[in-house]
Design a protein around this nucleic acid. Structure first.
Lengths: 351, 351
DNA sequence: CTGTTAGCGCCTTCAA
DNA sequence: TTGAAGGCGCTAACAG
């Protein structure tokens, strides 16, 4: 395996010094166009690639960005990652993958983050649904380390973030059910640690209140977004004497559980019960009945977050501080995808 | 942002030299247990993390492994990645993610690979379904760069690989259909570039021939594993005067297309047509009817491949060459998951 | 067993 | 506009 060339080699070949080659590589201004051209040609001919580790060590940028993701098992992660990696592939950066699983305690999560930092590899971080780690990331960002979060915005944080508009999505879904005539609409809440979860709950409440309906605590149960976590809530709802005519599940996974439980109770959807989910992950379109759900633009979220981070890196590496651009944030719209899991309630009760 | 500590700092704090710290960090043998203990304590207290770039530059290993994956959009990728990242997380390595999309020409794929090499970051590579890039990877491996492939074995290659037993899986699926009484079993073939695709086809043929049935070319059509690519083949099969009583789709995605097309033709599954898929990706269990399919142990594949690569890295870094262990390979068994998409043919024709 | 001495390949002043 | 020199944090001989 032929020894890798160094800038020294191509310096010799181009008849210049290492410094000049370095300048060309880093597109500095003060290089004679002719020289630059010559150096570039040699680099091309030799298919020379600069050693990132050395560059990093010598004080340059690392051209590596880290991505901190929750369980890759979540079906929606693949689309987000696809968005991210498409952008990164077009850039001079490479992507580092760090994953955190839900059953890691906070302390362990912080350890992962501190490893990312201290190992000194990544020069920026993309955090997907960081949940409880958010405050720590904020701290990081404020210390000058580029971070972009994909999630809903939580406490006023200065960290740039990209999210789908969870509140509006949930609002639209609830409103849809309301307009069909439903009045007893149950909600299966996701874990409160996640901003997205809170925002959806808010949207649900907003729609209800706008319709002049009170929030009925008995119609709200908690799941945790994972498969089967919607079963218990569904069981409770469907066993009620005055059971709800519609259920809005905090995410699709939990909606699937409702389907299962409803089936067990001999209830048919949408005839006996309307059902709406949130996310629009792949299975949803294939269910029977196909699930009406709020679609999140996962690919776009990944793509835009990556682009945002890249732009932050460019800025911090060149001149201007992040003084000008306070609080970068992008909120993407969600779409209510109407399929066949909803219909007007059989017996519209008065109110 | 407090200056990052270096081994020099912790050397001072522990009252030893940098070399000793380095030895402890790299778990070398020749260190006094007491000294080691002391150094370790300081490292712990200071939450020191070694700078990988510097370590790499100084001639050590890079503690970075690359993963080369095809489109992350494939639903099965997330499980494979989960297996990989679980293993990597438990190791001192970090994971680099490179993705290749199908519409990149071979040349572009090679470029990605050569970038991986020349950037000199990864010290090993995990290639998932490399398809046409396989020969190039083989070359790499033979030049001494650790590579593990996740796919079916192709031409006799020396590269260590992990795969599901695609042939046997397809054989079992076909046999299942045969035993139910089906005789006209159509097959939707995946792209021939993929080994896995070829192996499944082989399994299909083997089962048929074992049953004394000839391979009927009109019952074989080609898709490419992607969504909707199974529509055209399904359309052809279901429009035949003497249409097949069962269809075996090369993967689940294409089976979904058969479902759609069958529905359009007013055919009910499994009453009018039996259907088997391959992969068992998440939606399959939720379809109506739930799809009978061959389950691949994706998580395991990722896990074992990562473990294999890690062991290769250990070996090459320490003493023994890879002389002893020729042709490492792991073949995992698949499971036929019987659900509700198959039944005996309505009218069992004589043969 | 431990410290000393050289670099690894690159970027960055500082002069020229 | 360019070259020379120094050092980033670490590992790897080589002494002791």
């Amino acid at each position: 395996m032929a020894r890798k060339l160094t800038i020294r080699d191509i310096a010799r070949l181009a008849g210049v010094s290492k410094s000049t080659v370095s300048r060309v590589l880093n597109t500095k201004q003060d290089v004679d166009p002719a020289t630059r051209e010559r150096v570039l040609r040699v680099i091309e001919e030799q298919t020379f690639v600069l050693d990132m580790s050395a560059a990093k060590l010598a004080g340059g940028r690392s051209r590596l960005i880290g991505s901190l993701v929750p369980s890759l098992a979540w079906p929606l992660m693949s689309e987000i990652m696809r968005g991210i990696s498409d952008v990164v592939a077009q850039s001079p950066y490479e992507l580092l993958l760090y994953s955190i699983t839900k059953n890691q305690v906070h302390e362990e999560q912080q350890q992962v983050i501190s490893r990312i930092l201290h190992s000194n590899l990544a020069s920026g971080l993309l955090a997907v649904f960081p949940g409880p780690a958010t405050p720590y990331l904020t701290e990081l960002y404020e210390k000058g380390f580029p971070v972009v979060i994909i999630d809903d915005r939580g406490e006023p944080t200065s960290v740039p973030w990209v999210s789908a508009d969870n509140r509006v999505g949930a609002y639209a879904a609830t409103r849809y059910l309301l307009q069909m005539g439903h009045r007893r609409i149950a909600y299966i809440q996701g874990p409160v640690e996640y901003r997205a979860s809170q925002a959806r709950y808010q949207g649900y409440c907003d729609a209800l209140q706008e319709a002049g309906l009170a929030i009925d605590p008995t119609l709200i149960q908690q799941g945790d977004f994972t498969p089967t976590s919607g079963c218990a809530p569904a069981e409770i709802f469907l066993s009620m004497a005055d059971r709800p005519t519609a259920i809005f599940a905090g995410n699709d996974q939990m909606a699937y559980d409702v389907l299962t439980v409803a089936h067990k109770h001999g209830l048919r959807i949408p005839r006996d019960l309307s059902l709406v989910g949130f996310d629009d992950i792949p299975p949803s379109a294939y269910l029977s009945p196909p699930l009406t759900t709020v679609q999140q633009p996962f690919y776009q979220m990944g793509k835009q977050a990556a682009e945002l981070l890249l732009s932050l890196l460019d800025v911090s590496s060149s001149s201007a501080l992040n003084t000008l651009s306070k609080s970068l944030s992008i909120r993407l719209v969600t779409d209510l995808v109407v399929r066949d899991s909803c219909s007007p309630p059989r017996t519209v009760k008065g109110y």
